[in-house]
């Protein structure tokens, strides 16, 4: 079975692996310890101590804080329980008119703000952009991902959560 050194997984996370190396990894069966090593690398990079259970975005992680499982940004800002949408606690900037859309998609490339708007979510702590939604005006805030943490750890990783 395939297994890769930690350096390779680190380069994979950072997008530094050349395509000739990446493609066989993508096409092969998932290496047994990938998730474990992946979490190890992420854990080494964050300045706080809570255990990462699952990454949920480029800057966001579900972490174990006491008895609770919360969403936390890599800067340390905490959003609250992972079963609730973290976006409701984030800063939001909505591009819903010609002028603001034009900054991103100039001229004819932009969408019709009557049909679609862009919602940008930022971390209140470090102001990093966390997510962008492209939705029709009035559409509820999208809840991207509620993972089945218990099932994932029990059935797939075969480890206690």
């Amino acid at each position: 079975m395939a297994s890769y050194p930690k350096d390779v997984i680190r380069d994979l996370i950072d997008g530094k692996l050349p395509w000739q190396t990446t493609k066989p990894i993508m096409s092969d069966f998932k290496d047994e310890r990938r998730f474990e090593i992946y979490l190890e690398i992420l854990q080494e990079r964050v300045p706080w101590k809570e255990r990462i259970l699952l990454p949920v975005g480029e800057h966001l992680y579900i972490v174990e804080k006491g008895a609770a499982r919360i969403v936390k940004c890599d800067c340390g800002h905490e959003f609250g329980p992972y079963t609730e949408n973290w976006k409701l606690e984030a800063l939001v900037y909505v591009r819903d008119d010609e002028r603001s859309l034009d900054e991103i998609y100039p001229g004819a490339r932009k969408c019709d703000p009557g049909w679609m708007e862009l919602r940008e979510y930022y971390c209140p702590g470090c102001k990093a952009q966390l997510e962008v939604e492209a939705v029709t005006p009035g559409y509820p805030v999208v809840f991207d991902f509620v993972p089945d943490l218990e099932g994932f750890y029990r059935d797939w990783l075969k480890k206690p959560l």
Partner: peptide
């Protein structure tokens, strides 16, 4: 000849 660690399916090639 490889075995998928999750599904235990046997795969031949293409490598």
């Amino acid at each position: 000849v490889k075995v998928d660690p999750v599904t235990k399916k046997v795969q031949i090639g293409p490598e």
